[in-house]
Design a protein around this nucleic acid. Structure first.
Lengths: 145, 145
DNA sequence: ATAATAAGTCAATATGGTTGACCTATTATC
DNA sequence: GATAATAGGTCAACCATATTGACTTATTAT
């Protein structure tokens, strides 16, 4: 940032965040809806797929939600055989979550839509610009909570 | 984008979007909560402040929500004297919305938190990188809906 | 005079949360 | 072995932010 940003530019950046997120999420929402699922289901599928074998507690921490909030969607995914819960070998209190093959397949469809959005947004963009984007987003990720 | 991005990088970008948005919104959420208000209230304040005199329909379109969803928060803001609704001079069907002085003040506090987050994220970042960020976010804003 | 439009309200429902409390099973500690 | 802590689960009440459909009143357009 070579010089001070005007309020106008900061405000338009705020709007970009809002509208970008909205545009980003709305795409997968339609597929979710067809399956009778919602965003939280997608997040659950995503993070389980991303962290094979993560425990319920770990998932709760990652999503930063209460166990009650997680309960219904997770149960639904388990009942739909998209997610499997397996007791840990060493500590039977722990449930380790993994995606079934079908769950994996659905997750790939959902996340695939988002990956295409990102890939398209990055098309014809320099690697250094992508790195800049990631830095800024990473910074925002870490402000707070 | 000089070469193809790996799935891993695309996925981590997806996560950046999710966590950045979460980090971005959580800050103002606390102030809102103290006032007994929520994100939708903030959005309403923001876009009215941004577009002085916009009509209900315009606000609905901007927020992409139904009038029923808008009704309670908007009514609350009007009752709290943060927002004023004034009939249009030429078409009495239209209500034009504006912030009261107090509403303006609150909006500045809320949005100020977000502006500081953005300004901090942009600190020591080249203008060209900020432009890149804006391009990417702008692209994501426009995918769909 | 009729049709269209802006805003408003009623109603039912859904998703994604919150808090507090309580329970069972398992592990850790003494 | 007994007690404390922990993981996961459930019940309950409530909230914010949505959706859809329907209906109403006032105003403007045709």
């Amino acid at each position: 940032m070579v010089d001070l940003l005007s309020e106008k530019e900061l405000r338009s950046s705020i709007e970009l965040m809002y509208f970008a997120y909205r545009g980003f999420t709305s795409h997968a929402d339609k597929t979710l809806e067809q399956k009778g699922l919602g965003r939280l289901h997608h997040r659950v599928l995503y993070f389980i797929g991303r962290n094979h074998g993560l425990t319920i507690s770990e998932l709760l921490k990652t999503l930063a939600i209460s166990k009650q909030a997680l309960n219904a969607p997770l149960r639904q995914l388990i009942e739909m055989k998209l997610v499997e819960a397996v007791a840990d070998n060493n500590d039977r209190r722990l449930k380790r979550l993994q995606l079934s093959e079908e769950g994996n397949h659905l997750e790939k469809i959902l996340t695939g839509k988002q990956m295409r959005q990102i890939a398209d947004a990055f098309k014809n963009v320099e690697n250094s610009d992508i790195a800049a984007w990631r830095n800024i987003m990473n910074y925002l990720s870490n402000t707070n909570i």
